[in-house]
């Protein structure tokens, strides 16, 4: 099936969404806050990936009457889509960003997600410099959902990704969305309930700082740490992770994220929270970080990583 996005054509298999087709092209990809390709049924909630379909298909060339969510709309043969070339889409995205930020506290200086936050990127690109919202923002009290994960419900944008991770990755889900409308919140109802071996992946899929790593809480800022790919023999998961170093110390372990900020393979809590020594890991290489990311400011490519010497010895001894 041939689809044209922003005047670039590509052949895609039937059943591909517009967003996936745009990702195959690799340029001018609509931003995603709730869609996660690894999670079934995700997407369609945040509306930040809205695009304009100027030609429905070869058989029915009428344009679609409204902007469509590209993550939930499948391509048709001969479809023509406008993303950043349409001022209407950009205006809509700006409004969506404004809506997403209405109840967001914008406490980026405090938040541990700052620097790798999707909402931060979105508002940097599409947001207003000043809020037009006069009313009181929705505020939740901190609740303790478990020993490893810190939850800040105030920062949540209700993307449901964490609920889907728990549904699709673990046998029993113990958290979900309570209440409805503006009062809806992610919660466990019973405190300290989350203890599943794969629950830590909620941190990785969260697009904002609503779910963060308690072992990394306030330790450093993301842009002061250096990401390194590493692996270990893990019985429960693939063991392929990113280690975030500050000096010779591993401050944080996360899954490996690809170009679209999605984890390639989910990792277990043991790898994520309890293996924080270089000795536990076999280091592969420096992580690839977009040079537009603030994290890349700390990656001195001319400097040989100090950790390498130790690591080269490690595989021999095994």
């Amino acid at each position: 099936m041939k689809v044209t996005i922003d005047d670039i054509s590509i052949d895609v298999p039937p059943g591909t969404t517009i967003l996936e087709a745009a990702r195959m092209i690799g340029e001018n990809v609509p931003p995603t806050m709730c869609y996660y390709s690894k999670l079934e049924g995700s997407g369609g909630k945040c509306r930040s990936c809205l695009v304009k379909v100027t030609k429905g298909s070869e058989k029915d060339p009428r344009p679609m009457p409204k902007l469509v969510a590209s993550c939930r709309t499948n391509v048709m043969d001969g479809m023509e889509v406008k993303n950043t070339t349409s001022p209407e889409v950009l205006q809509a995205r700006k409004s969506v960003t404004e809506f997403l930020l209405i109840n967001h506290p914008i406490d980026c200086p405090v938040c541990d997600q700052a620097g790798e936050c999707d909402l931060q990127d979105l508002s940097y690109e599409h947001g207003l410099s000043k809020s037009r919202y006069d009313f009181k923002k929705r505020i939740f009290d901190l609740i303790d959902i478990g020993e490893n994960i810190q939850m800040h419900m105030t920062r949540c944008i209700m993307c449901y990704r964490c609920v889907m991770v728990a549904d699709q990755l673990t046998p029993e889900r113990v958290h979900g969305v309570l209440n409805r409308g503006e009062a809806s919140e992610i919660s466990t109802y019973i405190q300290k309930a989350i203890d599943n071996e794969f629950s830590g992946n909620m941190i990785d899929v969260c697009p904002v700082g609503a779910l963060t790593d308690k072992t990394f809480r306030f330790k450093s800022r993301v842009w002061f740490t250096k990401p390194v790919y590493a692996h270990r023999d893990c019985k429960t998961c693939s063991g392929k992770v990113t280690l975030w170093y500050q000096g010779a110390e591993v401050l944080r372990v996360t899954g490996r994220k690809n170009k679209w900020h999605e984890v390639e393979e989910f990792i277990c809590n043991d790898c994520r929270f309890h293996k924080k020594n270089t000795e536990d890991w076999v280091i592969e290489s420096a992580a690839t970080i977009s040079r537009h990311s603030v994290i890349s400011q700390n990656l001195n490519v001319y400097e040989k990583p100090v950790i390498h010497k130790k690591l080269q010895e490690k595989p021999k001894s095994e």
Binding site: C108, P109, A114, F218, K219, S220, R221, W223, F224, Q297
Partner: peptide
């Protein structure tokens, strides 16, 4: 609030902090 932006912007690397 120890956000580290001053340390990040500092061209002389003069600022450090612990949160």
């Amino acid at each position: 609030t120890a956000c580290g932006l001053c340390a990040l912007s500092c061209p002389a690397e003069a600022i450090t902090m612990i949160a």
